[in-house]
């Protein structure tokens, strides 16, 4: 089990088009060929292949790395945030790192409190 190895794989995937292509073609084989594959637990491999954004957030993956990974998978913003919340509900608080939850009423409530109007397409 290695948060470092999990993040290293995501770091490389986020920035390397060749690796992205191989991952798209065969996630399991690409993960098996990762230079730190031996440091990954079965749960971590499954989360990286899934992708299981909620579990990766629970593990403590840096949010910036995770956000780019979610975007790579075409996960919409609101869905991305919900997957992280679901991951915490299912697996418990963030294990380590600085990307823990601290409590927030949410964007809509906050925008209303500020007196903002809803956005509109093409704004």
């Amino acid at each position: 089990m290695s948060l470092y190895a999990v993040q290293k794989f995501l770091y490389r995937l986020n920035r390397e088009p060749d690796l992205q292509g191989r991952y798209r073609d065969d996630r399991d084989a690409t993960l098996a060929g990762f230079e730190l594959a031996g440091d990954l637990s079965d749960d971590e491999v499954a989360a990286l292949a899934g992708p299981d954004v909620g579990y990766l957030f629970h593990l403590g993956v840096n949010g910036q790395i995770l956000m780019h990974f979610a975007a790579f998978h075409g996960i919409e913003w609101a869905d991305y945030l919900q997957r992280m919340r679901d991951g915490i509900a299912e697996h418990g608080p963030v294990r380590e790192g600085v990307y823990a939850m601290t409590g927030y009423d949410g964007v809509e409530a906050h925008a209303t409190e500020l007196g903002h109007r809803p956005g509109g397409a093409g704004a």
Binding site: M67, L81, M84, R85, Y99, M101, T102, Y104, H110
Partner: peptide, 9 residues
């Protein structure tokens, strides 16, 4: 608090 469920705070 970017890229967390608290994003927007």
């Amino acid at each position: 608090w970017p890229a967390t469920p608290d994003s927007g705070k």
